[in-house]
Simulated assay, not measured.
Amino acid sequence: MIRIKARAPTGREAVLPTVWGAVAVGYKFGCPLAQQNGLGARIVTSAVFFAVGTGLIFHVRRTLLRELRLARRAARAAQNVVLRPPPPRLDGLNVAAAQLSADRGASVGGDLYEVIATEYGVRVVMGDVRGHGLAALGTVAALLGSFREAAHDEPELGRVLRRLDRTLGRHLRERARSEHPAHGAPDPENPVAEEFVTVLLLEIDRDGRLRALNCGHPWPYVLRGSRVDPLSRADPLPPLGPFPLPAELEALPCRPLLAGESVVLFTDGAEEARDARGRFFSLPEALREVARHHPVSPQTVLRMVFAALRHHAPGPPTDDIAVLVLRNDRGGACRTSPAARDGEAGGSAARPCQAPTRPQPSTRR
């Protein structure tokens, strides 16, 4: 669990309150004017104590603001370590990501994402932890640490997902023991029954073939020229946490990501943003507006999407928002016929790429 330790006040910071207190006590017991009961003496006494109180209030306020700035700086540093920015280019993919926390004045949240180039292809995780702020950052750190190891170790995407599920269960049990030490149980039953995490795993190989595993997360959108299609319409698995994973886990083959096409991953905070009339933000419509200016870089997609979000819901967000965009800039992506590439109107169901079978991964580490 991540904790931000409060800094104890230094001797220098304690000097001013001591001086103000000494002035007040010295005036009260050492000044003859303070012993008088006349109107003028009372006015002077009140003015002295008002000045002392005002000075103490301003000193405390300045100290608290300094501590708040330090806490925010520590929170940003912790998140930059846990939720590190992805590289702008990774194995032929152009990558960009941005995150907005629902905590006012904070930069930490419950959203997680990572992009890693492995010998099995580029592997991506996008997730959403229930809750936001520092309370969710510990769960984010545990899951991302597990993914960064499993993405390189596990040849199958389903085994990566199982590693994440085991990590989440272990993290919740340890957190329950630390929060309720009086129980004394080595393994509390239902440690955090209401905790869950939605997770989406993607794998993009060198030919652009794309596989996915989805546990309760919104399906990404794919920008194909001026078109915006969901990656799949298949029903996702339940979120991690409340329910066990099925015995058989097989990644879903999706339409390949051709050269120049982009996939946009996001958390549900993006589509649940409401305007003053209670209308939800339409992410597909915002992406169609972006697609009119194609070709656009992932950085431009992020900038235009977040600008549309701020225009639709100008106030602070009610939920964490994260958006991750990957564009295939490889020249030798998997090719399909024009009919298969364009598809029928509204036909965005997942289809396997008609290409040679996936080569066996090398055993070299």
Rank of each mutant, 00 (worst) to 15 (best):
A117P: 00
G109S: 00
A96H: 07
A106R: 11
A102E: 03
R104I: 12
R89T: 15
L93W: 02
Q99T: 10
G109E: 00
P88C: 14
Y113Q: 11
G92W: 07
V108P: 08
Y113I: 06
V115N: 01
G121S: 07
Q99H: 11
A77W: 04
S101T: 04
V115R: 05
P86W: 04
P88L: 13
G109C: 02
D91P: 08
P87F: 08
G121N: 06
V95Y: 05
A96C: 06
E119D: 10
S101W: 03
D91N: 15
I116F: 06
L112H: 06
A102V: 05
R84I: 12
P87A: 14
Q99V: 11
S107G: 03
Y120C: 03
L83A: 02
R104T: 11
V81C: 14
T118N: 03
V81R: 15
E114M: 08
P88V: 15
V124P: 11
T118H: 02
V82T: 05
G105Y: 08
G109Y: 00
I116V: 15
L83V: 11
V108R: 03
L93K: 01
I116M: 09
Y113H: 14
P87I: 08
Y120S: 00
A96S: 14
T118M: 02
V82Q: 03
N94D: 13
V108E: 07
A98I: 09
V122I: 12
A117T: 01
R104C: 02
I116H: 08
G110C: 03
D91K: 10
R123G: 11
P87S: 13
V115D: 01
A106V: 09
N94I: 08
L112M: 13
G105A: 08
A78F: 14
A106W: 10
G109T: 03
L100Y: 06
L83F: 02
E114P: 09
A102L: 03
A98R: 15
P87W: 05
E114W: 07
G92M: 07
P88A: 15
D91A: 15
Q99W: 06
N94A: 11
P86D: 05
A102K: 03
P88T: 15
G121D: 04
A98Y: 12
L93S: 02
E114F: 09
V124F: 09
L100E: 13
D103K: 02
Q99D: 09
V108S: 09
D103W: 00
L90F: 08
A98P: 06
V122H: 09
E119T: 10
P86C: 04
R123V: 12
V82A: 02
G105N: 09
T118L: 04
Q99Y: 14
V81F: 14
L112P: 01
G109L: 04
V82R: 02
A102N: 02
R104M: 07
R84V: 13
A102Q: 04
A97T: 09
L93F: 11
P88M: 14
P85K: 04
Y113F: 14
N80T: 14
A78V: 15
T118E: 04
A117M: 00
A97H: 10
L112Y: 08
L83I: 13
V81W: 12
A98L: 12
A96L: 10
P87K: 12
L93Q: 03
S107N: 01
Q79W: 04
V95L: 04
E119P: 07
N80C: 10
V95S: 05
P87G: 10
Q99P: 00
